[in-house]
Design a protein around this nucleic acid. Structure first.
Lengths: 150, 150
DNA sequence: GTGTGTGCAAAGCTTTTGCAGACCC
DNA sequence: GGGTCTGCAAAAGCTTTGCACACAC
């Protein structure tokens, strides 16, 4: 059974890139924190535990590389930093996000909710869709419960 | 008949803010370029024609103020700059965008396509939606035509 | 005169780039 | 040895902040 890391390694090799120790450490951090939405700085701090010598520039370069390979998606919730989010293997489209405006939590929706909407857009606006970004801003179930108790 | 500017002026006054000449010039630039998605720098350069003394910091401060008042929305297409987009008066939700990955054009969809999707999310994920951001990345009709001719 | 608003310059952030050295086949 | 890759430091954005001055009531 091939592991996820090995598949990413093959993907790198197929484009003549190497899976260096620094790159591997970065990918492992991403895999271990799949649910979070880490900024480059976050990734850097976590990678330093595994590879203390690594530089921030290398993390940026690796994240850019992984974005190019579509292993991760670079996302932006409007707070001034880019975040990097592992793409689900085999996912045709990027997943959606729920950003809580009270506590800042970011939850994910893996289901594809936009199938019908995309058809409407492709036909109605004559636009050939390659990807999408959908983010809802509102109040998460945790904050709703908290507010109800008060 | 009250103009758009006057309504914005009232909105400012109701929050104890003034519509200074600089703020008015900035708002006018936004109104005159409603279809574009201007960055702060873009706005600054255009405002300078009307009010040459204005500083970039004032433009930033004004745009922040207008964002707070929900006159404009601060958006981000992942190119490293924030853009400011006039919110349609009375629109319950923010409109959607079509970003062309070939020519960079940004078109708008004013129709609300997410009514059903929002119901699904609110029920299924127990999330109280306040706003959304939906952007499609793909190829616009102009580039499709151009590609067909080649 | 008190408070808000402004312009300028400086500072703060995140992110990118230049470069010399390290590493690998 | 020729390529890729890396770490460090510097540079390059975009955006915010500090401060003294201007203006309005």
């Amino acid at each position: 059974m091939e592991t996820r890391i090995e598949r990413i390694k093959s993907q790198l090799h197929s484009q003549k890139y190497k899976l260096t120790p620094q790159r591997e450490a970065t990918v492992r951090v991403l895999l271990e924190n799949e649910k979070d939405h880490l900024s480059a700085e976050d990734v850097y701090l976590l990678v330093k535990d595994k590879a203390p010598e690594i530089g921030l520039a290398t993390v940026y370069r690796t994240l850019e590389l992984l974005t190019e390979l579509k292993v991760v998606d670079k996302i932006n919730f409007g707070d001034g930093v880019s975040r990097y989010d592992l793409r689900q293997e085999g996912a045709a489209h990027f997943h959606h996000h729920l950003v809580c405006i009270e506590c800042g939590a970011v939850d994910e929706i893996q289901e594809d909710l936009l199938g019908d909407v995309e058809k409407v857009v492709e036909k109605g606006w004559n636009f050939l869709i390659k990807d999408h970004r959908l983010t809802f801003h509102g109040i998460c179930y945790r904050c709703q419960e908290k507010n109800d108790k008060e």
